[in-house]
């Protein structure tokens, strides 16, 4: 029980810090209003985005049976960005919900493409899959950049590519609460996702509807990725770092572990956002940049420490 108390305390301190830290002081007359309109939404957005990305990571890892992948290593956000570019070009006036739906649909297509590639790759070398995913994402990203360049939309692309929270305000982040609903749904099928991780043959032998479960998992990953991308932008490595650290600590029975994974992702992104607000105060460094630096470090450590069969 004790680690939970510790984690809870750290989380509370982080939330308080996030509410307090920023270019404007909360001790001014309008402090309450500032917290309500800006700081609380910003804090909630960071926590929800981090949790969503961490959960998306663990689901995709079980689907492809490889611990070293996560949405940004399967071309998922790049595919969603292509969809968003398309929407911006064809129907710029579309409501946010519509944009998210299109982004999620494209993210799903992107993942189906990745799975088609993954099927041809030997599972013997777990490193191969993330490398292929990186190249695949790179190609999709290059197409997005080309399209954006040709159509003068590079600014949009820049916003999506580098997730950060400075623009989060009341009324502009609420879609992220859907992450909480999806997390609950995921918790209900946690056993099934764990069984997916045993591989198709074994999962089917246990009577799991493999195709359906995998499809549900992929839809959840797509929607999580799209919601986070549309509201606050992309964050690399969260889906990799949080599940791997959680599993090193507590093993991997998802029914017990999903809350830890979600919390880990949430604290990682919130921590990065707080630090980003502090180091060049009163200016800001995007949270995604800090997450990327930290995440890349942990990724390298995992590569070094991982048993060959990931």
């Amino acid at each position: 029980m004790r680690p939970w108390v510790g984690i809870g305390l750290v989380l509370i301190v982080m939330i308080l810090a996030s509410l307090a830290v920023g270019a404007a002081s909360i001790s001014d007359g309008d402090g309450g209003w500032l917290i309500w309109v800006s700081r609380f939404p910003r804090t909630a957005a960071a926590l929800l985005a981090g949790a969503g990305l961490a959960l998306a990571g663990v689901v995709i890892q079980n689907v492809v049976q490889n611990r070293l992948v996560e949405p940004t290593l399967t071309g998922t956000p790049e595919a969603a960005m292509l969809g968003l570019l398309g929407v911006t070009l064809i129907a710029p006036g579309l409501a946010v919900a519509g944009k998210m739906l299109i982004a999620a649909g494209c993210a799903l297509l992107g993942m189906v493409g990745f799975l088609a590639l993954a099927r041809r790759i030997s599972p013997r070398d777990p490193m191969l899959l993330p490398i292929v995913g990186l190249i695949y994402g790179g190609i999709l990203g290059a197409i997005a950049t080309y399209v954006a360049w040709q159509t003068d939309l590079m600014q949009f692309l820049g916003i999506w590519q580098l997730g950060e929270f400075s623009a989060v305000m009341q009324g502009r982040y609420e879609w992220l609460w859907a992450v909480a609903a999806l997390a609950f749904g995921l918790y209900l099928i946690a056993d099934r996702i764990t069984i997916l991780g045993l591989g198709e043959t074994q999962a089917r032998s246990l009577g799991l509807g493999y195709e359906q479960t995998r499809a549900i998992g992929l839809v959840i990953v797509s929607v999580l990725t799209a919601i986070v991308l549309v509201t606050v932008g992309a964050f690399p490595f969260v889906g990799l770092v949080a599940p791997n650290l959680a599993s090193r600590w507590q093993g991997d029975n998802l029914r017990a572990n999903l809350p830890i994974i979600a919390l880990g992702g949430a604290m990682l992104v919130l921590g990065a956002d707080i630090i980003g607000r502090l180091i060049v105060y009163p200016y800001e460094i995007p949270a995604a940049t800090l997450v990327a630096i930290l995440g890349a470090g942990v990724f390298l450590w995992l590569l070094h420490a991982a048993p060959r069969r990931a």
Binding site: N62, L198, G199, S205
Partner: peptide, 29 residues
């Protein structure tokens, strides 16, 4: 799955399950 149990060649799992958790998944069906 309640009629026939199958174990594939060199089974693996991506999850860091404990032995008792793995065995317990046999009860899933």
């Amino acid at each position: 799955a309640r009629m026939v149990a199958f174990l594939q060649q060199s089974p693996t799992t991506v999850s860091r399950l404990r032995v008792e958790e793995l065995v317990a998944f046999g009860r899933w069906p």
